[in-house]
Design a protein around this nucleic acid. Structure first.
Length: 598
RNA sequence: GGCCCUGUAGUUCAAUGGAUAGAACGGAAGUUUCCUAAACUUUAAAUGUAGGUUCGAUUCCUACCGGGGCUACCA
């Protein structure tokens, strides 16, 4: 069915034709939701139309208003204020709209079919030498939520993770473990595997610094010391061994990486994120060389005297970019060229989204440009979802200063706080212990996820540990609570044998708060679509916050089960039930679960 | 130096070029014989500076000032 905003715009165009004998395109007519503080549902902005009406804005508004009322039965009245024509829709329209969607299970979603565009979303992409931290949390939550949102917008989504499991940094951890590990394992130490390996990475760095200091005090320059420190040389040797498939090295590498994966798996499960497919750099790092060779042959890339291969992007306002070192080995960019190519072969995607921080904006610009130069038209289908850094009250996270917020620690802390608050409020008294834990977990994660996702992805965000644990105001638990309270009302209603079956003809008049809710819900398909188009879960978060605020207002002033008028009672119950389902569905897109009671 | 992002109440966030710039936290004052008060109601408080485009600018353009990032034969 055609949306009412479009119908208003269409009929307004007709009005202009009939009244002023002038053609105005429907797209040029501005129809927007009326401000909260004005009477009306939708507003036609008539300022621009005075150009064709050759009359004052007020007069133009009146004339178009009369025309619209005569031609659109849904319009029950209008008001003109300056250049704004505020149209009021009848209660029948809103109730009729609600009747059509009341039983929808995934209201506003577009179904995925075999013809749906294929969208690959790469996110998370961790290093196996460091445990996940707050920055990864934003990445994971964004990647997951964006995937869900665009899936709900009718795309066939493939969530993929490219694990950085090789390279000199991994060798550092391995070397440190060999030297100082004394055979320690996650089992023997009781440590999470990723944490244990992370410790050895730090240990390497510490020893490296000691060696550097010594070398410099012996008269070496810093640059020289950095390459000549014995420990880094050892790590280089190990990398070479790894690349030559030395069995012992490969065995250790496999073992330690598996520790890390077990650790990551646990964190991913806690966060509730998942992937359709994992890629490993150890299997992809050689990709891309062929592409570079082809590019050299066709002359779009060039060699320098030392044999290194480059792309010249100066014509596009960028620099020259190295693609193969003089020794023929590849760099990170080379591999990304290769994996993009591989993915296109594999999925023939309509779009490929990389969820990666904005510190890599330049990298992705180059990636796209080089692929284009190589003649791949699908380069335009690549999109870098560039999100802002997460800052702490004292500035950026710096491992050197020990200000890195560990993902597992943060989750644990959130759950502890949820437990404490629940206890203080006495909310979970009488709940079985397992349910208590489940509720605290869901509240904690709901708070964390909402806190991060409500911010526009593009923006740098401030993470204040104390605020994030807040459960009041514009927070996840606030939304969860509203939904839970509706579920409770539903149970009460069921006990009293109230069904919530609505009968359109019996609903005479809407309460203002009921009207606001229906109008809000009517907007949802547009919001969801826009969130998918702009890849912004924040839009959904804001929508549900507004909806929930309005619901709480309604709840305060409109009795549901206690309403004596049967038609009203049924309508309110049906509306409440719909909203609870709607919240649960929408929060699901953000990866937030709702407890049954809290 | 070059390139990119970003400046909104005390703080953290909103606002497809539209009306009197919205919330939340924090501050002040209220609401439980009534469906869960993790709620609701009332209240004070902000667009970095200067120009430009427009009927109309927080939004677009230019300059300046402030914050962040990138600019490796690292990944």
């Amino acid at each position: 069915m055609e949306r009412i905003e479009n119908r208003i715009a269409r009929i307004t165009a007709l009005a202009i034709h009939d009244l002023y004998n002038c053609e105005e395109k429907q797209e040029n007519i501005q129809v927007q939701s009326t401000r909260k503080d004005q009477n009306g549902d939708y507003t036609v902005v008539t300022f621009p139309l005075t150009r064709v009406s050759k009359k004052k804005p007020e007069e133009t508004g009146m004339e178009i208003g009369d025309y619209l009322r005569a031609h659109l039965p849904e319009i029950s009245g209008f008001e003109v204020i300056k250049g704004f024509l505020n149209l009021t829709l009848s209660d029948q329209f809103w109730v009729g709209f609600f009747e059509g969607i009341a039983d929808a299970t995934h209201y506003g979603h577009k179904m995925v079919t075999i013809d749906s565009p294929v969208v690959v979303v790469e996110y998370s992409s961790p290093n196996t030498n460091k445990p996940l931290h707050l920055g990864h949390i934003r990445n994971n939550l964004l990647g997951f939520a964006v995937s869900r949102i665009i899936a709900a917008s009718g795309n066939d989504v493939k969530m993929v993770n490219l694990v950085n499991d090789r390279g000199i940094h991994i060798c550092k951890s391995m070397l440190a473990w060999q030297k100082w590990g004394n055979g320690i394992t996650p089992e023997s130490s009781g440590m999470k595997g990723d944490k244990l390996v992370g410790e050895f990475y730090i240990r390497f760095d510490k020893e490296y610094k000691i060696e550097l200091k010594e070398l410099i005090s012996n008269g070496l320059t810093e640059e020289k010391a950095k390459v000549e420190a014995p420990i880094i040389r050892k790590a280089q040797e190990m990398l070479l061994k790894w690349e030559n498939n030395d069995p012992e090295t490969i065995e250790l590498w496999t073992r330690m990486n598996n520790w890390v994966y077990a650790g990551f798996e646990k964190t991913y499960r806690q966060l509730g994120v998942s992937f359709d497919k994992f890629y490993y750099e150890s299997e992809t790092y050689k990709l891309g060389k062929d592409l570079v060779t082809t590019g050299l042959d066709s002359g779009v890339l060039f060699r320098k005297e030392d044999g290194s291969a480059w792309a010249d992007l100066t014509a596009d306002g960028l620099d020259q970019k190295l693609l193969l070192r003089s020794d023929g080995t590849s760099v990170y960019m080379t591999q990304d060229l290769g994996t993009a190519h591989q993915r296109y072969q594999e999925f023939a995607f309509d779009r490929h989204i990389y969820v990666v921080g904005n510190e890599q904006d330049y990298h992705f610009k180059v990636l796209k440009l080089v692929l284009k130069k190589l003649g791949f038209s699908w380069a335009d289908k690549l999109y870098h979802l560039s999100y802002g850094m997460v800052e702490l009250p004292h500035g950026r996270m710096k491992s050197r200063e020990g200000t890195v917020v560990d993902a597992d620690d943060l989750i644990t802390e959130m759950i502890d706080t949820a437990r404490k608050v629940s206890l203080e409020l006495g909310k979970l008294e009488g709940f079985p212990p397992e349910e208590k834990e489940m509720v605290n977990y869901r509240i904690a994660l709901g708070a964390l996820k909402y806190y991060i996702l409500k911010v526009d992805p593009q923006k740098t965000m401030m993470f204040n540990p104390e605020e994030s644990i807040d459960f009041n105001g514009n927070t996840g638990p606030f939304i969860q609570y509203t939904c839970v309270r509706i579920r409770s009302v539903e149970r009460k209603a069921a006990e009293s044998g109230i069904t919530g079956v609505i009968n359109l003809s019996q609903v005479q008049e809407l309460d203002p708060s009921e009207h606001d809710l229906l109008k809000r819900i009517y907007q949802y398909p547009d919001i969801l679509e826009e969130a998918g188009r702009s890849l912004s879960p924040a839009l959904l978060a804001n929508y549900f916050y507004e909806l929930v605020k309005e619901y709480n207002h309604f709840y305060q002033f409109c009795p549901i089960v206690k309403e004596p008028d049967q038609a009203k009672r049924n309508f309110r119950l049906a509306l409440s039930r719909f909203i609870a389902n709607h919240i649960e569905d929408g929060m699901g897109l953000l990866g937030i679960d709702i407890p049954d009671r809290m």
